[in-house]
Nucleic acid binder design. Structure first.
Length: 590
RNA sequence: GCGCCAAUAGCUCAGCUGGAUAGAGCAACAGCCUUCUAAGCUGUGGGUCUCAGGUUCGAAUCCUGAUUGGCGUACCA
C-alpha cells in the first residue's frame, strides 16, 4: 500500500521531468539514462515523508537541482488531485507529504481483514522451499552455536512461509562416525550402566558427560583411539552389541535435544539421519566414477578435480571405501529431492563450512542434477564470547539448557520483584516465554552473515533493546485494549476519523504499519531475520514514546479515543505478526 | 602461501539498491512514577565510519591497494 503511494508520486514526478525535458528540447532517453528517480525518506518528519533527490537530472536539464525542484512543484500544483500543501521543495530535493489519514483508513481495513496475515506477501507463491538447520551430533547437548543456528533456521522458515512458500523444515542428525563411538566407548568402560532415569541427568547431558570422559581417558591410555576405530568398524558391520548401545545412547541424546527444542520453540517437519544416507552417497560416487566424472587415485581413493571452479582436488571416498562428510551430504541431498522435490534448498550452516558447500553444490551439478543450482548455503557467522572463542577444552562452551534455565530464572525473579505474579497467571510459563523471546531476539538482531559476540550478562539483561522490551509493548497494548473492551459499548456510535491522528508519532506509526509488508518480503529475499528484529525495535520504541506522551483511553474527545484505539489495535497486530517471525512469544500480560 | 569474510561511539550492533547534520542499546551523568504496568520515557556527553588512493554533482556505502582480525585451504564434521 505504501508502495503504491510511493509509485504514485514517483510516476507523477517522472512525468514532469520528461515534460520539462521535452520543452527544453532534451531527448527523453537522456533523462532516463541519467538514472532512476530515487525515492528516499526525509531526515526528519517535519520535512515531509518522501524525498526525491534531483541531482542526477541537473546535467541533462542544464539547470540546478534546486531549480528543477521548484519547477516540478510549480507544475504539479496544476495537476488534478495534487494538494499544493503536500509539496515541499527543499533545496535539491523535492519532498512530499503523503496523505496519512487516507493511508490510515485503508490500512485499518486491510489490517482488520487480514489479521495475523497482515504483511504476508505472495513473493514465493507456489515455491517449495526446504530449510535444513540445527543438525546436531548425538554425542553431546546443544550449545550456544546451535542456538543461533536454530533461531535463524526457524525464523527463516517462518519468513518464507509468510511469503507464501511451501516450507519443509528438515533436521539432519549426525549420528554416526568416530566421534559418536568415542562417547559410546567411554560409556561402556566407565558408566556402570547409569541411565538418564537412574542418574536423573538429561539424556543428552549424560552422553555428553561420557564424551568428555573419553577425552580424559584418551590422554591416559594411548590405545583409546584404536579402540574407538575398532568400534566404528564393528558399527559398520552391524555388530549387535554395538548397535544396541548406539541405539540406546542416540535415543537419550535425541530425546534430550528435543526437550531443548521445545523450550526454544524449534520444530521440524522431518528428520534425516546420516546413518541412513551415507550409503546412497557412496553409491552415487561410485556411479560418478564409472561415468568418468571422478577419478581413482593410486591408493584407490576416489577424487574430484575442482579446477573448473578454481579449487584444488578433493577426496570423495576414502581408500578403505568408507564415506566422508561430503559423501554423506551428497546422498542426503539426493534423497531429499526424491522424497520432497524442492524448488530450493537452504542450508543454514556456519560460515566455516562455506568451502564444503561450494564443493557439494559443484559435485551435484557435475553429477547432472538440475536442481543443484537451487541449493543455497545460508552462511551465518560464528558466535564468540567477550573473552574470545568458545573452547570445549577450556570449558568455555555455553550450554544451551543452562543458558535457558538462567534466563528463565531471571525472568521469574523479575516478575516477583515487580509484584506481577497475580497478573501474569502461570508464572513458569510466562517466565519461559520471556526467556525464549530474550534469547531469540538477542541471537537474531545482528545480520546473520556476521560473526557476533554473545555477552551472557547482556543477554540476561531485560532493559533496553531486548526481547522483553518488545514483549512489554505487546503486553501494554493488550492491557489497554482489555480496558477498552469494557468501555467500548459507549462508543458504538463514534466513527473512525483518521485525520485526528495528527501528532508526529501517530504519523510515524501509521507509516511503519504501512511499511510492514515490504519488510516481510525483504527479509525473505535476503534470508535475513534481522530486518524483522530491527523493525520490531523501531516500532516498539516509537510506540513506547507515543503512549507515554499521549493518553489513548483518556483522549480529549470520544472521536480521538476511537481513532487512537484503532491505531493501537493495528500496532498490536503488526507487533504480533512480527513476533511470530522471529520467535518472540506474545504475552498478554507480563 | 592462496581463498573467503569483516573493520562504524569505551562496549555490542543498525545504517535499504551511493543522497540532506552517521543512528540505537549498554556503560556515564541529569531529570520523570497521586496520571492507560517505570521491563518505561526525556535530556547531556561520546565519531577523521581502520588507513591511502580512485569513480561521482555527492562515498560509511562502489572500485583498487595496504593494515588488523576471523574463517577456510584434512582420507574431521
Amino acid at each position: 500500500m505504501y508502495q503504491q503511494v510511493k509509485e504514485y508520486w514517483k510516476n507523477l514526478i517522472e512525468e514532469q521531468l520528461h515534460q520539462i525535458a521535452q520543452e527544453k528540447g532534451v531527448d527523453a532517453s537522456l533523462v532516463r539514462a541519467a538514472g532512476e528517480l530515487a525515492v528516499n525518506t526525509t531526515p526528519s518528519p517535519d520535512m515531509g515523508d518522501l524525498a526525491f533527490p534531483l541531482f542526477p537530472f541537473a546535467k541533462v536539464l542544464r539547470t540546478s537541482p534546486q531549480n528543477i525542484a521548484q519547477e516540478i512543484v510549480k507544475r504539479l500544483k496544476e495537476v488534478e488531485g495534487v494538494s499544493p500543501d503536500s509539496l515541499l521543495p527543499s533545496g535539491p530535493y523535492l519532498n512530499v507529504f503523503i496523505d496519512i489519514p487516507q493511508l490510515a483508513r485503508s490500512l485499518r481495513e486491510s489490517v482488520c481483514a487480514e489479521g495475523d496475515e497482515y504483511g504476508h506477501t505472495d513473493l514465493f507463491e507456489g515455491k517449495r522451499m526446504m530449510v535444513e538447520f540445527s543438525c546436531p551430533n548425538t554425542n553431546k547437548p546443544l550449545h550456544l552455536g546451535h542456538l543461533r543456528n536454530d533461531a535463524i533456521g526457524e525464523s527463516i522458515s517462518h519468513i518464507l512461509k509468510a511469503n507464501k512458500a511451501e516450507v519443509e523444515k528438515v533436521n539432519l542428525i549426525n549420528n554416526r562416525g568416530i566421534h559418536i563411538c568415542k562417547s559410546m566407548l567411554a560409556y561402556q568402560k566407565f558408566s556402570e550402566g547409569e541411565t538418564p532415569e537412574s542418574s536423573g541427568i538429561k539424556g543428552d547431558h549424560l552422553v555428553g558427560k561420557y564424551y568428555v570422559r573419553y577425552a580424559a581417558w584418551e590422554k591416559e591410555d594411548p590405545s583409546a583411539l584404536i579402540q574407538a576405530q575398532q568400534m566404528l568398524r564393528k558399527w559398520e558391520e552391524g555388530d549387535e552389541e554395538v548397535m544396541d548401545l548406539w541405539n540406546r545412547m542416540n535415543r537419550w541424546t535425541i530425546e534430550g535435544i528435543e526437550e531443548t527444542y521445545r523450550k526454544t520453540g524449534v520444530s521440524f517437519d522431518s528428520y534425516y539421519y546420516e546413518s541412513d544416507t551415507y550409503t546412497l552417497g557412496k553409491d552415487t560416487i561410485l556411479k560418478g566414477l564409472e561415468d568418468g566424472i571422478f577419478y581413482r587415485a593410486e591408493d584407490s581413493s576416489i577424487w574430484i578435480d575442482l579446477e573448473d571452479i578454481k579449487l584444488d582436488k578433493k577426496v570423495l571416498l576414502r581408500k578403505d571405501g568408507t564415506s566422508l562428510y561430503l559423501t554423506q551430504d551428497i546422498g542426503t541431498a539426493i534423497q531429499r529431492h526424491e522424497k520432497w522435490p524442492f524448488d530450493s534448498l537452504i542450508y543454514v550452516v556456519a560460515s566455516e563450512q562455506a568451502y564444503h558447500f561450494k564443493v557439494l553444490f559443484h559435485v551435484l551439478a557435475k553429477l547432472g542434477y538440475q536442481w543443484a543450482g537451487n541449493l543455497y548455503h545460508l552462511s551465518y557467522g560464528m558466535v564468540n564470547l567477550p573473552e574470545g572463542k568458545m573452547k570445549s577444552r577450556e570449558g568455555t562452551v555455553v550450554d544451551a539448557d543452562d543458558l535457558i534455565a538462567s534466563l528463565t530464572a531471571m525472568a521469574k525473579d523479575e516478575i516477583i520483584a515487580k509484584n506481577r505474579e497475580k497478573e501474569v497467571g502461570d508464572i513458569d510459563d510466562v517466565s519461559e516465554k520471556i526467556a525464549r523471546g530474550a534469547l531469540n531476539y538477542y541471537l537474531l538482531q545482528p545480520s546473520p552473515t556476521k560473526d557476533m559476540i554473545f555477552n551472557p550478562a547482556e543477554s540476561i539483561s531485560f532493559n533496553g533493546n531486548t526481547g522483553p522490551y518488545l514483549q512489554y509493548m505487546g503486553a501494554r497494548i493488550s492491557s489497554m485494549l482489555a480496558k477498552w473492551e469494557v468501555m467500548k459499548d459507549e462508543y458504538g456510535d463514534v466513527p473512525f476519523e483518521p485525520s485526528l491522528l495528527s501528532v508526529q508519532d501517530e504519523r510515524e506509526l501509521i507509516k511503519m504499519i504501512a511499511l510492514w509488508p515490504s519488510l516481510v518480503a525483504q527479509a525473505a529475499r535476503e534470508y535475513n531475520p534481522s530486518i524483522i528484529t530491527s523493525f520490531l525495535y523501531d516500532l516498539s520504541r516509537t510506540f513506547s514514546r507515543y503512549y507515554h506522551d499521549h493518553a489513548v483511553l483518556k483522549g480529549e474527545s470520544r472521536e480521538l479515543i476511537v481513532a487512537r484505539v484503532a491505531l493501537v489495535t493495528m500496532v498490536l497486530q503488526v507487533l504480533k505478526n512480527a513476533y511470530a517471525l522471529v520467535g518472540i512469544p506474545f504475552l498478554e500480560s507480563m
